[in-house]
């Protein structure tokens, strides 16, 4: 009755109406940004009086925007590699290890994901001040690694738990060394977990803004820090252009993830 769409009666109308409204609420702001980024109005008039690529030109002509794009990308790339490597090792230990306190350790590794990030940001700012790591590439990578690692551990642990360990044992029985079996049998078996660990780790660093605001120096700013700093001053349409590029990247990663899921099912 309540789970059959065709037999909901009058309730169906209410459900459709709310779904329509919430769908519009979630989608329209995103479409608005895309439209404004091509609109010719400096004051973000909507509908735009005309269309232009001017904001994209301003964006790509500004070496500081380009620099912050590159900084964000480099940090996120290094974080992704380290997060998948460290996460892979930790996941092996957590799913296959026999030492005591594994559940507590797992909970500890996941804590950075649930605690308010502003607390970590302020704490790291004070800590890195003493180590002279604020405003450095190493500081950014270390801080973002802590945020990214939980995503990696969740994705890879889940894949490892689903992986049939007998296949790895069979490879060893057939003469492979334990390490060889892990590299040539287990890693390909959990590749979907590794890829989603990489995607989530990349996004965790790429989108991270609170820690980055505290960590940034005038010379080393990630893209979100630059957007935040600009937004504090004015609502320039250049931000709409940056946002549109970020939305396109998100949509591309979503499509990739969807393709992988399809691939996994077939």
């Amino acid at each position: 009755m309540l789970l059959d769409f065709s037999r909901l009666g009058g309730w169906r109308v209410a459900l459709i109406l709310i779904a329509l409204l919430v769908g519009a609420y979630l989608l329209l702001p995103i479409l608005l940004i895309v439209a404004l980024s091509f609109g010719s109005s400096q004051w973000l008039q909507f509908p735009p009086p005309g269309w232009t690529l001017r904001w994209y030109e301003e964006l790509f002509d500004d070496p500081e925007w380009i620099a912050s794009f590159l900084t964000s990308f480099q940090i996120a790339a290094v974080v992704t590699v380290l997060s998948v490597l460290i996460g892979l090792m930790a996941s092996f230990g957590l799913t296959r290890g026999t030492f005591r306190g594994r559940e507590a350790l797992r909970a500890l590794f996941l804590t950075p994901m649930i605690l308010p990030v502003v607390v970590l940001a302020v704490a790291l700012y004070a800590f890195f001040l003493r180590l002279h790591l604020n405003g450095t590439f190493v500081g950014f990578v270390l801080a973002h690694l802590v945020i990214a690692l939980p995503f990696s551990i969740i994705a890879i642990s889940n894949a490892l738990e689903r992986f049939d360990r007998d296949i790895e044992t069979a490879a060893i029985v057939c003469g492979a060394s334990p390490l060889e079996a892990k590299i040539r049998v287990t890693l390909p078996g959990i590749r979907l977990g590794l890829v989603s660990a990489a995607i989530f780790s990349f996004l965790a660093s790429w989108d991270e803004v609170v820690i980055a605001i505290f960590m940034a120096s005038p010379d080393l700013q990630t893209l979100p820090v630059r957007i935040f700093g600009t937004l504090r001053q004015d609502l320039s349409p250049v931000i709409a252009a940056v946002s549109t590029i970020l939305i396109a990247l998100t949509a591309a990663l979503m499509a990739l993830a969807a393709l992988l899921r399809k691939d996994a099912r077939s």
Partner: peptide, 17 residues
């Protein structure tokens, strides 16, 4: 899509709106 869109981009949209 909304969940994965950059937080600053979404907040910017609401500042404009």
């Amino acid at each position: 899509l909304s969940m994965w869109t950059n937080l600053l981009a979404r907040t910017y949209a609401w500042m404009v709106l």
